[in-house]
Amino acid sequence: MTLKQVTEILECTVLSGNDDLQMEVNTGCSSDLMSDVLAFSKPQCLLLTGLSNSQSVLTADVADVKAIIYVRGKRPDERTLELAKSKNIPILATQYVMFEACGKLYQAGLRGIGKIL
C-alpha cells in the first residue's frame, strides 16, 4: 500500500515527506525498543512506534526503514523532525494507540515478518 493510503486509514497528520506519499510500503514493524527494530525489521518497512525522540529516526536510518508513524499522539521535537528531513524519512503521526494502528494496517493488507524461529 502507499503512504497515502496509510495516512487515510490511520487519519494521520503528515509532519514531513508530503511529497513522498506515493511511496509503497509492504511490511510493517512496531516497537518502542530500538534494538528490537534493528533485530526484527525488514529493510524498506514501515515503522510504527511511540518513541518520538531522535533515536527513533537514527534507528530508522540505520535499519533502512522507509517511513515512521508515531502512534498515540506522540510528536517529535523540531530537531528530530529536521533530522528526519535530512535523511529523507517521511514522518506521519496518528492518534490511534499502537494496537489499533497495527490492526487497521494489517486488516488493510500490510504484513509483518511473521514468527521468530
Partner: peptide, 11 residues
C-alpha cells in the same frame, strides 16, 4: 529513550 531490550550485543 528506547534502549534496554538486551538485543544490542546479540544483534
Amino acid at each position: 529513550m528506547g534502549f534496554g531490550a538486551g538485543m544490542g550485543l546479540p544483534n
